[in-house]
């Protein structure tokens, strides 16, 4: 049985990412979430996430993006106490998930997506993301993945 082949960032890219300051990356990520997802997240879901911190660990970049939900908006967070949820995966798999090229349960069964923390909130987030149709953004991501895929 097989999930798609595991693709890690080239080592120099990972090394460079490790040296970048953390906060600007989290600010950029929270801004991207506000632009693409915030208005598509039902208010009752944002209310369930309100006040909590979440971590997206990009393992091959050695980067952890931290954000919180405050006033129904995504905001960058500083290194905090244990986040309510932490996701761990490589950059390519995150992009494939966002592009709807990979199935989250399959990545989970194959230990490529690790989820730590509150399972109910994790399921709520996963299912909410599954209800969101952003065909243009996903189309762009898919094209980018095809262009970058090693031949």
């Amino acid at each position: 049985m097989s999930a798609p082949a595991l693709r890690r960032l080239p080592r120099p890219v990972g090394a460079l990412a490790r040296r970048l300051p953390r906060l600007p990356a989290s600010v950029a990520f929270a801004t991207a979430l506000n632009l693409t997802l915030r208005r598509r997240f039902p208010a009752e879901v944002l209310d369930r996430l309100e006040g909590h911190t979440f971590a997206i660990a990009v393992e091959d970049a050695g980067v952890e993006l931290l954000f919180a939900v405050r006033g129904r908006r995504f905001a960058p967070a500083a290194r905090a106490a244990e986040p309510l949820l932490r996701f761990r995966a490589v950059a390519w798999d995150y992009a494939a998930l966002a592009a709807r090229e990979a199935d989250p349960d399959t990545l989970f069964f194959n230990r490529r997506l690790v989820v730590e923390g509150d399972t109910e909130i994790a399921l709520l987030v996963k299912n909410t993301l599954d209800t969101i149709d952003i065909p243009r953004t996903r189309g762009l991501l898919r094209r980018a993945l095809r262009a970058l895929a090693p031949r």
């Binding site: 230990r111 690790v114 989820v115 730590e116 399972t119 109910e120 994790a122 399921l123 709520l124």
Partner: peptide
């Protein structure tokens, strides 16, 4: 397996 009752945890002995 209601999600509120489910816990996944990395431990020294495994997931």
């Amino acid at each position: 397996s209601p999600a509120r009752a489910v816990r996944w945890q990395e431990t020294p002995r495994g997931l």
